[in-house]
Structures are given as structure tokens and as C-alpha cells.
């Protein structure tokens, strides 16, 4: 079962998922605790939100959406999911 070409694709796509989650975590953590770790009266505000929240949660979310779109458009491969479709796929 390990020979299936589709599984090699699936394995690399799973790795992409792990990488995305790592980027997501670092961005989220970095901005939240990097900018948020001071007294609230020293906070700067962007578009009405405290800067740590704006960068971590709002921009972080938008960045992840863009990354997911890029991954889907450029890195994921269409494969048939049923075993019958296998013959059509040649390397």
C-alpha cells in the first residue's frame, strides 16, 4: 500500500499542514506576547484595537487565509480518491 503514488502526494501535503500550523502558532504567539507583555497604558492602538491583538489575531488570521489559498493553488495536487481512477494517473 506504500507504493501508491497518491500516498506520496498525501504525505507531503500532511507535512505542509504541520508547517502551516507552526507558522500560525509562531505568528500568533510572537505578536500576542511580544507586543502585549507591558503595562496596558503603554499599548499603542491600530484601527481601534490594541496593537498586540491587531497583529496577532486579526492580521494573523488574514495571513493564514492567504497562506492557505497559496498552498491550495500552488502546492496541492488533484488525485482520484477511488481505486478505479488509478489507471488514469501515470507518472
Amino acid at each position: 500500500m506504500g507504493k501508491d503514488r497518491r500516498f506520496r502526494i498525501a504525505h507531503s501535503e500532511a507535512l505542509i499542514g504541520v508547517v502551516l500550523a507552526l507558522i500560525n502558532f509562531l505568528w500568533w504567539y510572537g505578536f500576542a506576547y511580544g507586543l502585549g507583555n507591558k503595562s496596558p497604558d503603554e499599548y499603542s492602538y491600530i484601527l481601534g484595537f490594541p496593537a498586540w491583538f491587531f497583529w496577532s489575531c486579526i492580521i494573523g488570521f488574514i495571513v493564514m487565509v492567504i497562506l492557505v489559498i497559496v498552498v491550495v493553488k500552488f502546492l496541492l495536487t488533484d488525485v482520484p480518491l477511488d481505486d478505479e481512477g488509478r489507471e488514469e494517473q501515470s507518472e
Partner: peptide
């Protein structure tokens, strides 16, 4: 993270 993580990890292999 749930939005992309579950589908990418279980992914096509799970579906197949």
C-alpha cells in the same frame, strides 16, 4: 488552525 489542519493531515490518504 482547525480550518486547514484536520483536512491537510488526515487529507487524501484518509479519504482513499
Amino acid at each position: 488552525a482547525t480550518g486547514y489542519f484536520v483536512l491537510l493531515i488526515l487529507g487524501k490518504k484518509f479519504a482513499i
